[in-house]
Design a protein around this nucleic acid. Structure first.
Lengths: 106, 106
DNA sequence: ACATTATGTGACCATTAGGTCACATGTCAA
DNA sequence: TTGACATGTGACCTAATGGTCACATAATGT
């Protein structure tokens, strides 16, 4: 999941699906003319395997839908762990993070 | 930043710094015996470049400190967009932080 | 000074990841 | 059925990544 989000193109694909959900491979290819269809397909496959995108076929098209659940879980289970101490860190930021520079700043 | 977080070893290093902040390279190497010192150093360099880890020298040691600010910003600027429910839960914290930063430090 | 400890640098190698292509399959519509 | 459209598969190349090592530098204690 982290790896799926590590690539900028994939995040851009998520953005595109955020703007307009349920797009086909074709439609997404049109939005990324700097890449071939195969590149887009590979990225979509990664996103799908990470469960960030869910698909269903509609005739000869494959429609892609954004799945926010993994991102929410990421926030709850991982980010919150580091983001919460941030509140306390802000109070004593210098003492926590920059003990070496506190002498000159203080 | 996403790339820095994409590697499991690097997230484990962040965990180690979360448990005990301000560790030296040596100490972190002891926590990861499956890797050599050079591997650990490379990962630490990536984390440092992503500003997820802040360092300062103490004699012949280099101490590493966790920096939660980029993670916090990640939550605010990126994750909140996709994880609206979580964003709602984080609003209280964020506004608290903004109060702290705008009023107390100003 | 000297040996020891802690970290830094550059080269090097194996593996993976991003990207493209030729080709194959499936689907619709006339 | 035939042709055009939409997607799938495997091979392939290149560049980036994770990891190691020999060697170098800096700080400490005696």
């Amino acid at each position: 999941m982290f790896k799926a989000l590590a690539d900028g193109t994939r995040r851009a694909l998520l953005d595109a699906l955020f703007v307009r959900d349920g797009q086909s491979v074709q439609a997404l290819c049109d939005l990324f003319p700097e890449m071939t269809r195969f590149g887009v397909m590979k990225h979509l496959a990664v996103l799908e395997q990470a469960n960030l995108v869910v698909t269903h076929r509609d005739g000869r098209q494959k429609l892609h839908h954004l799945n926010p659940i993994p991102i929410q879980q990421l926030a709850e289970r991982w980010i919150a762990k580091y983001a919460q101490p941030f509140a306390r860190a802000m109070v004593g930021l210098q003492t926590t993070l920059e003990r070496d520079t506190t002498q000159e700043t203080a």
